[in-house]
Design a protein around this nucleic acid. Structure first.
Lengths: 324, 324
DNA sequence: CTACTGCGAGACAACGTTGTCCCTCCATTT
DNA sequence: AAATGGAGGGACAACGTTGTCTCGCAGTAG
């Protein structure tokens, strides 16, 4: 049996003061005589005492765990990972720590993880909503990337409609008239919004569209069959990086990478090193994460205004694949 | 003022039973009469009661928070992100949740975050050690990616020496005799081990070496100047993906990507789509994460054997850049 | 010299939960 | 009919900490 971790009581005993005095010293109250405080500090050092955050938060008035939850699609996806990192950095500035979870767009997981975080008394939540009904957890929530259905709260999203429309107009400006669309899961507001932008830019001239693509493999297959139709598009617009990468592979496989134009929504690492370099509508996941964290901390600190919907602008980065 | 979250006492009152009976039902004890249990469940539903994990863990005998900490270099780096995700998946199987933090190889951060996690009573820690002295936190720790200095514990690492040696031998087999080395921070065991592998493969014929590179920009600069020396290497070996990417940029900039061979340690997304496709010694971060998590959970469950050093094999993936 | 003030420090309760103990029933046994 | 036993459920303490209250004591004023 290893000895248990020391408690305030142990510190009090070795310092020869009362438990409460230790509490005062540890919490930096100034009403303790310097000599006693020194004895307490010495005891803390010698025992390697660490306060028990769970116990203190049980009794404290503010009830803060100084921990938030971050629930994203997949922490190993570059977009989610960048957003996660930005949230972490923002949190660290305030001494807040982060519980994470990957949802894989699974509403069941979303429910389970929000419940688990609620049991752990996280002070708030940053959530990429999967499109399911959400139960209220009496906890501040900021939604990122997507707009939730049937719930309200601060929301931080990219300018999806205008960003997508801009991408498509860019292709139009380079002479394309028949522009194919390859998009993600229509349960998610991002996919719908980006499709709306595509449609807005093209009006009745909208080209062939494939929806509900997730991974590069699906996307590659879809792109190949789209390009093998009778009247194939001369340009493609993709709504997320995994789809874009699949399409790059498809074009490469067909030897059409220099004859079919491509603009993808969401930037990805090494896009500029491909041949041709891939033109994208870049999102700013770091800024989204910072913004969401800031909004969440305001809510945690009691800010009580109406729900805000914050749009983070996107940037068209012309690298070559969209200028064919 | 929003009403506070309901407690077991509230549930007990609305169900008309004692607090302890609620506790029994919530914890799935079977000694409660079905009729009472049903009343309790109904009350739990109607109040949307959630147990307070902090309070229960304070009193419970096992003292588990069912939360572990994961401290990596940078959760937005592909290697760390993949490892993180694998740990999360393994943890989810056991109903464990994950606190994360990025260390940026900063010993101060490492100390601060391990202390913060200790205060939060995490059941254990998975840590990519930054090379600093570690204080013991009376908590099971599994080290990943690198071997810690001055501490012992289960360690999960890639076969760094043999992997690096294999990469260099691969270049030798393709006729290269003058092979340059571009490596990372020598405070870290990975950089040292990969350099050792490089040296082992080359013996006295070791070529020019640059160390302590971090990001693609530094690496690009270093590669350019190495290739502009009087007797430039005909092949390069890089020890981590950020460096590899920088070197790819350098070769591209010099127009030497088809004349200078390159093998990189650690695979990265889209390496196969570059021109030429990049030959790498692939690590298996997912397996490392799973292995580390499994080892940690064994330790948490009381396994008490001597420290284990688990080596996860690497795989040479020949794609073109190393076969010039 | 007494009464008051204020500050330092301890005693005690409380946070929400679970471990332990004990009491009450009712069914069985003799 | 009385004793026995087991199962269900409640009372109480405890986990490690902080909020509140109170007490003692020194210093000051009257």
């Amino acid at each position: 049996m290893t000895p248990n971790r020391p408690t305030m009581n142990d510190v009090a005993r070795t310092a020869g003061v009362s438990l409460k005095t230790v509490s005062r010293v540890v919490n930096g109250e100034t009403t303790v005589a310097p000599e006693l405080a020194a004895r307490v500090h010495a005891a803390v050092e010698s025992l390697d005492y660490r306060p028990h955050l769970g116990a203190s938060m049980l009794r404290r008035n503010d009830r803060r765990t100084r921990t938030i939850g971050v629930l994203l699609d997949d922490v190993s996806h570059p977009f989610s990972a960048a957003l996660h990192r930005a949230v972490e950095d923002q949190a660290r500035a305030g001494g807040i720590h982060v519980l994470t979870g990957s949802l894989d767009r699974d509403p069941v997981r979303e429910k389970a993880l929000t419940a688990a975080f609620a049991e752990r008394q996280t002070d708030g939540l940053i959530l990429a909503p999967s499109g399911a009904e959400l139960d209220p957890h009496e906890m501040p929530v900021v939604y990122v990337d997507r707009v939730p259905t049937g719930a309200t709260g601060d929301t931080v999203v990219s300018t999806n409609v205008s960003g997508a429309a801009g991408a498509v107009r860019h292709l139009i400006a380079h002479g394309h008239r028949r522009i194919g669309f390859l998009g993600g899961d229509r349960h998610l507001s991002t996919a719908r919004d980006r499709y709306a932008g595509y449609q807005r830019a093209l009006g009745r001239r909208a080209g062939p569209a494939v929806h509900d693509l997730h991974d590069p493999t699906d996307a590659e297959r879809a792109a190949v069959s789209m390009l093998r139709t009778a009247d194939p598009p001369t340009a493609l617009f993709t709504t997320q990086s995994m789809v874009t990468i699949g399409v790059v592979r498809a074009l490469r496989r067909l030897g059409r990478e220099h004859s079919v134009a491509l603009v993808g929504f969401d930037d990805f690492p090494l896009a500029d090193l491909l041949d041709p370099p891939v033109t994208v509508v870049a999102q700013d996941p770091a800024r989204m994460g910072r913004t969401a964290a800031t909004a969440l901390f305001e809510r945690i600190d009691g800010h009580d205004g109406p729900p805000r919907e914050i749009r983070i602008p996107t940037t068209l980065i012309a690298r070559g694949s969209g200028e064919l």
